[in-house]
């Protein structure tokens, strides 16, 4: 299990360019379909917690999955796994061992992976939206938070805080209405 966690997150770190969000569909694929460690709903909670908390989203996700499966040791192994490829590749580049900027084949491969990462993010939007946007209130919340973050450049921390409070208020109002 520990090795499985390490390998999964090592591959995630190695193949996803553009960071945590691009990892979402791959992680979902692995966790929900392949290994059946989580349900779709549990994955959405994972994403909500990992994006709502500060820090690198990929590390948050590695820690979350690792912790849920094998506690402290699991989260440590997963986090090291997701960081390690970055660490090695950046060190090689920083030491000038790989003149990647001049090599059209390496740059092409990286460009292909980067374009694919954008595709992955589109898949992520669709997958999470499908699970979350059930009903007009949730849909409005999703659209509103998108506009706030992407176009009005509101800090994600405030959006998460507002969403948290909105969730509690809506629950109270519905509770009184009943």
């Amino acid at each position: 299990m520990l090795l499985e966690l390490f390998v999964t997150f090592f591959k995630l770190g190695l193949f996803t360019i553009g960071g945590g969000v691009a990892m979402i569909p791959i992680l979902r694929d692995k966790m929900v379909n392949e290994k059946q460690w989580f349900t779709d709903e549990e994955m959405v909670d994972l994403f909500a917690v990992c994006q709502g908390l500060p820090g690198v989203i990929a590390i948050n996700m590695a820690t979350y999955v690792g912790f849920k499966r094998r506690g402290f040791l699991g989260s440590l192994v997963s986090t090291v796994g997701v960081i390690l490829p970055s660490f090695v590749i950046i060190l090689l580049i920083a030491q000038g061992l790989a003149a990647i900027g001049d090599n059209p084949i390496i740059m092409g491969a990286l460009g292909g992976l980067r374009a694919a990462a954008v595709g992955l993010i589109i898949v992520a939007v669709w997958q999470v939206a499908r699970t979350v946007m059930k009903g007009p209130v949730a849909t409005a919340g999703a659209v509103l938070s998108f506009v706030l973050i992407a176009f009005l450049h509101v800090n994600v921390a405030y959006v998460v805080l507002a969403a948290l409070i909105a969730g509690i208020v809506i629950d109270k109002v519905r509770g009184q209405a009943q």
Binding site: V44, A48, I121, V128, A138, G141
Partner: peptide, 29 residues
């Protein structure tokens, strides 16, 4: 119940955050 309600509030915002990442990463690509 309060924690559940709070999580239900944050879930839609997750969609917004991922969609915003599409713009941040898609634009330069």
């Amino acid at each position: 119940r309060t924690l559940d309600a709070a999580l239900r509030g944050v879930r839609p915002a997750t969609v917004g955050m991922i969609a915003a990442a599409f713009i941040t990463i898609g634009k330069p690509a």
